[in-house]
Amino acid sequence: METSMTTQYHRRDLVRAFAAMAGTGLFPQLSRAADYPDRPIKFVVPFNAGGNVDGVGRLLAAAMGPLLGQPVVVDNKAGAGGSLGAAAVAQGPADGYTLLVGSNGPLTVNPFVQAKQNYDPLKDFVPIVLACVVPHVLLANKDLPAKTLKDLIALSKREAVSCASSGIGSSTHLTLERVNASTGGRLMHVPYRGGNSLVPDLLGGTIQTACMEFSTALQLHKSGKARILAVASPQRSPLAPDAPTFIESGVRDFTAYSFVGLLAPARTPEAAARKLIAAAQAALAAPGMEERLQALGVEPASAAMRAPAAFGAYLHDEYERSRETVRAAGIRAE
C-alpha cells in the first residue's frame, strides 16, 4: 500500500541519509555473520500491552521469527512515556538481539518535553524499518453545535472549547498546538493519561473535543457516538470516507501522524542489521500483513518509506517538527 508521504522523500534524500548513516560508523563488521542469530531475539515495546505500538510489535515479531530462524519475543517495558524502554535498548548490548519498537513519544517528542533523557534518539539508534503510520484527528462530542472544523475554530474564538489529548507533551498534544497555531483557534488543552482514558469523558460531554489517533477514533465515529471533524492526512481515509481532511477544510498542508518502527542500538554489527532489515522488509511485504495492519486501524508504510534511509530521514524531520512546535507553544521540559 503506497502512502502519500512517499513523495516527500526523493531518491537523492534517501541516498544522502544512507551515506550519512554509513559515515557514522554505526555498522562495524560482525566477525561471525553466519552465526547470527543463534538465540532468541527480543523486541522491547516501551508501553503496556495493548495499543498500536504493542500490536504492531507483536505482528512484526510473529512474522520475523520464522524468517530469522529464531523466536522473537516481545518485552513490554513501560514508563516515562516510552523513554524507559528506549533507554534500556540504547544502553544495552549492540549485538542485534535486543531491538526497540519505537514511536513518536520516545523518539521525536520526549527529548523536548522531558528534562532528563538518558539517550539521544538520533544518535543511539539505527533504523531498521518503518512499519506503519496513523493520522491524527479532531474528534467532537456528537452534540457539539460545531459540525465542521471551520465551525469549531469559530466557536473556540467566541467561548471556551475543551480539547483533550493523551497527555502533556504527547504527540497528539503537539498536534493540537499546531492546530491552534495554524488556524488561530483557541482550543483549550485538557491532558489525560493515554488516548483511551479520555473517551468516556468525551462521550459523556465532560470534554467537547479531542485530538487523538485515527485508530482510536474510528469506531466512535462509525458508531455515531462521536464525529471526526478533520483527519490530518493528505487524503480522506477509505475507512471513514465521510471525514474530511484538515487540508480540504482550509488548513494548508496540515498533516500529523503517529508512527511505529523497528530500531536497533547504534553500533549494531552490519551483518546483523542487514539480516534484520531483510527479515523486516519480507515480513511487511508478506501476503496478508497489510490487512492485519489495517485491522489495527493503521496505514502500512509504503515500500519506499520502509527503507532504513527513508525511515531515518522521516525520524529527523519529525524530531525537528516537534522541536519547533514545543518552542512555539512554550512547553517546558519537566
Rank of each mutant, 00 (worst) to 15 (best):
R321W: 13
G167T: 01
V179G: 00
F254G: 02
R306F: 13
Q29M: 03
P269E: 10
A140N: 05
G288P: 03
Q294H: 08
I228K: 00
T183K: 04
P241R: 09
L202I: 04
Q8V: 06
V199K: 03
F43D: 00
G105Q: 07
A78T: 08
F125S: 05
E320I: 12
F254K: 01
D124L: 02
K222M: 14
G25N: 05
I331Q: 06
G330I: 10
L67R: 12
A20P: 00
G81C: 11
T206M: 10
F246R: 01
A271E: 15
A279K: 01
S233T: 05
G185T: 08
D151M: 10
D38F: 13
L130D: 01
F254S: 02
R252H: 14
R323N: 04
T3H: 07
Y192D: 01
G184Y: 14
L296V: 09
G205Y: 09
E213M: 14
E213D: 14
K225M: 13
G51I: 01
I153T: 07
A304H: 10
K222W: 04
L60Q: 05
E290N: 15
T183P: 01
A33D: 12
V199W: 01
N141W: 04
L315Q: 04
L68G: 03
I153R: 02
T209N: 08
K275N: 12
A232V: 04
R58I: 09
G105W: 01
K142H: 13
T209W: 05
V72P: 00
E270Q: 13
G250F: 10
G169E: 03
A181S: 09
Y97V: 03
S156D: 13
G195S: 05
L14T: 07
G185V: 09
H10S: 15
A63D: 07
N141L: 08
D151L: 10
I207T: 04
L262H: 02
L239E: 07
D95R: 05
G96V: 07
A328D: 15
S156Q: 10
P287V: 13
V45E: 00
L14I: 14
V53M: 07
V113L: 06
G224K: 05
G92E: 04
N52I: 12
G261D: 01
M289G: 09
A226M: 05
T6E: 15
T98E: 11
L284R: 02
P127K: 07
G51W: 00
A22I: 12
K77G: 04
K42F: 09
L68W: 06
N104P: 02
F27P: 00
L144W: 07
E324R: 15
P40Q: 13
A256L: 03
A328V: 14
A278N: 10
A282G: 14
S302R: 05
